[in-house]
């Protein structure tokens, strides 16, 4: 691919977006694979997803076009147009029309933007879930370093084997009265806490 220099030129100058997205993506990917810290992995994941978003947005670029919101003259309701002296109904005069193909070139492609809106939301959801997992891991093992985590998991496994208790500790089924106790404890706790608050109303 590099047999003539033009491609490199093209890549670095004319298609800088594509080049940058690849670099970002690789940074993210490397962080996800090689970093030992779970949070760093998640940062890598975010970079990775952002790179893909950048790529998609690059697809939507059209030279000399504006954002995909109708200009006043094409607006079906004229809600963008400068208020004129005529009464409200005049906005509906020109009504919705199918845009001419020459005018189509004037707007950027809306589809990649829509797709990326979805991808961003998915990324946020994944990140939130992953952070919750990290907290859970930290609660359980007291570390978010991958190698320490593995070591702790292994030692626990060995311990549980020697104790011939095959069910992991936290899977043990709590008895009913224990549950009740727990409930009452948490209720009382929330009472004591909310007592110090200025507005305890509405709290169940």
């Amino acid at each position: 691919m590099f047999e003539d220099g033009t491609i490199i030129n093209e890549l670095l100058i004319e298609r800088l977006n594509y080049f940058i997205y690849v670099v970002l993506l690789l940074i993210g990917l490397h962080a996800m694979i090689a970093k030992k810290n779970l949070i760093k992995k998640l940062i890598g994941m975010s970079i990775f997803q952002t790179a893909i978003i950048l790529f998609y947005v690059s697809i939507g670029v059209k030279e000399g076009s504006t954002i995909p919101v109708y200009l006043p003259e094409h607006d079906p309701h004229g809600s963008h147009s400068v208020p004129s002296d005529t009464n409200e109904t005049s906005h509906f005069d020109h009504g919705p029309v199918i845009l001419d193909s020459s005018l189509v070139k004037g707007y950027a492609n809306p589809l990649p933007h829509v797709l990326m809106l979805t991808a961003i939301v998915v990324g946020v959801a994944t990140l939130g879930l992953a952070l919750a997992l990290c907290q859970r891991i930290y609660q359980g093992y007291g570390t978010i370093e991958e190698d320490e985590l593995l070591a702790k998991m292994e030692s626990r496994e060995i311990r549980s084997k020697t104790l011939s208790v095959q069910i992991p500790k936290d899977q043990k089924l709590p008895k009913k009265d224990e549950l009740k106790k727990e409930k009452s404890r948490s209720v009382s706790k929330s009472k004591t806490l909310s007592a110090s608050k200025p507005k305890p109303k509405g709290k169940k």
Partner: peptide, 17 residues
């Protein structure tokens, strides 16, 4: 369990990739 959470994290990273 906590073990499941630790396993899920790997699943999440690979699944996201």
């Amino acid at each position: 369990s906590n073990r499941a959470a630790a396993a899920t994290f790997n699943y999440l990273i690979l699944g996201t990739i």
